[in-house]
Structure formats: structure tokens, C-alpha cells
């Protein structure tokens, strides 16, 4: 990727941001960014939880959602009728939202 002509051209400048931030380190974990998941989450084939509008309301209000699916603990992709608003964090059968609260409001759902 570093050999890409566009990257070579861009490297001549003093750049403070490149492309879309995809991951960030949180402690010992690597967390996908909300924006990356919104853009590419539809391509995922596992760790997807289908939710409805009421579920998303609850998650954004700070509630936990019980999940019956057999999934490992970790980040999951929330899918609202095929639309990916962001990530959830699944721990022992309940999911909590990882969607930035300051950016999403209950009125949006």
C-alpha cells in the first residue's frame, strides 16, 4: 500500500490526517471505529445483531439489550433493517451500545 502512487504523492506534504480512521486502541483491545463500521459493516458475515428501532432507542438511552445468539464476547455490529448505525459491545449475553452518545440522539430513531 505504501507503494501506491497516491500515497507517495501525499507523503510529500505535511499531513495531519489520512483517509478514514478505522481502529483505535482501547487498553489491550483494538476497537473498530463507528465510521469505519458504518461504511464497511454491511460486508461483515458474522458478529452481526439485528435490532429494531425500539431496541436502538433503548441502547442509546443507556440500557442493555439481552442477546440470545451464540456469540463470543466482544464488539458486534448493530444492524437496523440493514442499516448499520455502529457497534455494540457484547458481554455475557447482553449488549450495550458503542455509538457515540453526543452524535446520536433519541430523536433520530
Amino acid at each position: 500500500m505504501k507503494e501506491s502512487p497516491h500515497i507517495i504523492r501525499a507523503s510529500q506534504f505535511k499531513v495531519w490526517r489520512v483517509g478514514l480512521r478505522s481502529f483505535q486502541r482501547i487498553g489491550s483491545f483494538i476497537k473498530p471505529s463507528t465510521r469505519m463500521i458504518q461504511a464497511f459493516g454491511h460486508l461483515a458475515s458474522k458478529a452481526i445483531i439485528d435490532i429494531n428501532g425500539a431496541d436502538l432507542n433503548k441502547l442509546i438511552a443507556g440500557e442493555f439489550l439481552p442477546v440470545k445468539m451464540e456469540l463470543e464476547n466482544g464488539y458486534v455490529i448493530l444492524s437496523l433493517r440493514g442499516v448499520i448505525p455502529g457497534l455494540g459491545l457484547l458481554i455475557d449475553g447482553t449488549v450495550r451500545t458503542q455509538i457515540p452518545k453526543k452524535e446520536v440522539r433519541l430523536s433520530m430513531i
Partner: peptide, 24 residues
């Protein structure tokens, strides 16, 4: 704006526009 809209092909710089480097 760029991250919300899923723009992947950009790099961000902060030069004075009138002195943007004449490198390419």
C-alpha cells in the same frame, strides 16, 4: 464531515492556501 460521509481518498493538510507547497 469526511468521516461521517465515508470519504477514504483524502489527506488533510493545513498550509496557508496562498503558500501551498509547489512540490507537485
Amino acid at each position: 464531515t469526511l468521516s461521517r460521509l465515508g470519504v477514504l481518498n483524502s489527506v488533510l493538510t493545513s498550509y496557508q492556501a496562498q503558500e501551498f507547497p509547489l512540490k507537485q
